[in-house]
Amino acid sequence: MLEVTGLRVAYGGIQAVRSITFHVNEGEMVALIGANGAGKTSTLKAISRVIDAAGGDVHFCGEKITRIAPHDMISKGIALVPEGRGVFPRLTVAENLAMGAFLRNDKPEIATDLAKIYAYFPRLKERETQLAGTLSGGEQQMLAIGRALMSRPKLLLLDEPSMGLAPIMVQKIFEVIRAVAAEGMTILLIEQNAKLALESSQRAYVMESGVITLNGEAAKLLDDPKVRAAYLGE
C-alpha cells in the first residue's frame, strides 16, 4: 500500500533522513522505532507532505504522492495524527471530530463513526461540548486519533502517540490503536517507546542517524540483542 524509496530529508545542510526505503502492506501495523533525532518524525512529515522531501519517492496505492499538495492527503485516504496532537484548541471536542469528516457527505455513516469514536473513548463523549484546548494531554491525544479516524482513512500515520502521557493513558491509547488495527486499518506507527511499539506491531524498522539499520518481524526484533541493548535498557 505504501512504498517509500530512497527518501531523503534535509534541513539546510543537515541530512535528517538519508535515502531510506521501506514499505507498509495493506492491513499491516508497522512501527518505525529509534532514539530521539533518528529521523523518524522527519520521515513521517515527508510522507504526509508536511515538509518537502529532498529526494526519493513515495507511492500510495500505486500512485506517486511525493509532490502532491498537503491538503490533498486526506482525500487520498491518508490521515496523520501529529506529534503534539494538533487539535483545534478553540473548537469543542464535537467540532474537532466533525472537522475530521469535513470531506464526507454520508451523514448517517458519519453519525455511526462518531458513535464508534465515543465508544473507543468514552471520555470524549463526556467532554463533547468542552473546548479542546482545556483537555488534558491524554484527552487531546484521544481527540487527535478520533478526528483522524473520522476521515475513514486507508492509512493512519501515528507520530509518537505515547509522548508525555501518564502510563494509564498510554495503555488506553494503545488499546484503541490495537483495536483499530485488528479491524483491518493500515497503520504506520512512529514511537519512541520501542517495547510498546514492537509489542503492538507486526513488522518494524529501526532507524539510527537517518538510516534504517534493522527491519523484520516485530516479535523477532523484540528479542534481538542489539535492539534490547539499545532501546529496551538491557
Rank of each mutant, 00 (worst) to 15 (best):
T5I: 08
R8L: 11
Y11A: 03
I14A: 11
R18D: 00
T21N: 03
F22P: 03
V24I: 14
N25Q: 09
G34W: 09
A35G: 07
A35F: 07
G39V: 05
S42L: 06
K45W: 14
D52K: 14
A53E: 00
A54N: 07
G55W: 01
D57H: 11
D57Q: 10
K64C: 10
H71K: 03
M73P: 14
K76Q: 07
K76L: 05
K76C: 02
I78H: 12
V81H: 01
V81F: 06
G84N: 00
R85P: 03
V87C: 15
V87D: 10
F88S: 13
R90H: 00
R90K: 01
T92S: 14
A94I: 08
L97A: 09
L97N: 03
M99K: 03
A101P: 09
F102G: 08
A111F: 05
T112K: 06
A119N: 13
Y120D: 04
P122I: 00
E126F: 14
A132D: 14
G133Y: 07
G138L: 10
E139C: 07
Q140N: 02
G146R: 01
G146F: 05
R147P: 03
K154G: 06
L155R: 00
L156N: 08
L157C: 10
L158R: 05
P161T: 00
S162Q: 02
L165Q: 08
A166W: 10
M169E: 04
V170D: 02
I177R: 03
R178N: 00
V180Q: 05
E183P: 05
N193D: 14
K195V: 13
L196D: 04
A197S: 13
S201T: 15
S201Q: 14
R203G: 05
E208A: 11
N215W: 15
A218H: 14
A219S: 09
K220Y: 10
L221T: 09
D223W: 02
P225Q: 02
A229Y: 11
A230T: 05
L232E: 08
